[in-house]
Amino acid sequence: MDRFLFLTVDGLTHGAVYSAFALALVLIWRGTRIVNFAQGVLAVATSYLAYTVTGRSGSYWLGFLAALLAGLVLGAVVERLVMHRVAGAPPLNAVIVALGLVLVVQGVLGMIYGNQYLPFPAPFDRSAMTVGGVPLVSRFDLFVFGTVVLLMIVLALLFTRTAIGLRMRAAAFAPSVARLLGVRVGRMLTLGWALAALVGALAGMLVIPTGLGLHPTAMDTVFVSAFTAVVVGGLDSPAGAVVGGMLVGLVLSYVAGYLGAGTAPLAVLALLVVVLLVRPAGLFSGPQARRV
């Protein structure tokens, strides 16, 4: 039972990060119908910036802030300079461009920082605190969980309580109608990318300290897990992304804990296949229109 509790808490903590990352993917999908395969590498790039800033200033939090700001700027720049040019083109174009971006950014990061794993600090102690005699949760886990919950609340307020959120949703759901109502759709899409990259940067800062360290491919497996979370929850559903992320986190934790870490990737794939077979649009998808 102790082990089960530990694995559940561990799964939820990792799942929270997958949820945040999945949310970033959903933000872009809803606005542009593009699965941003470059999401992971953008997060890695911002983490490298945080690494540099932290190294030079000696302040983790200055690096943390730099990563978030860089995410915001990088997302906007990528949308304006790269993805904007394939908007309206066949979907495969955007996928290929995003994959190309992954290769370019990974290559550039490797050239600047090298291809070895760099130690990435965590702002809080990662050793588990004992609750009722069971080593359960670390301060860093609590920080991760609290940050992701705060992020969810802020995003929910942004989209449901502010005019800019309303405009962003309108631009995503019905761009041509939104334009007729004075919404600057292009700006909203850029803002959506910026916001998604900021969320991705945050997820990177939360998950990289729990892995081997900083590396140009550090977010690849996280991306796969988050992508699975999005498919499980439904590409159009922010709530689905959150639940999907938690589910993937729990599955990974239980399988790694009971069957061995080597089997965890297979479990994620199995989950992906089951959802695609049983409910291809995701667990939280709305009713699908059928043209007759």
Partner: peptide, 21 residues
């Protein structure tokens, strides 16, 4: 996908600033 009230607010949302809270 938007509620009736949100559709109506959207009609004049361009008059609000960035946040518009």
């Amino acid at each position: 996908e938007l509620t009736v009230e949100e559709n109506l607010m959207l009609g004049g949302a361009w008059r609000l600033g960035w946040a518009g809270v």
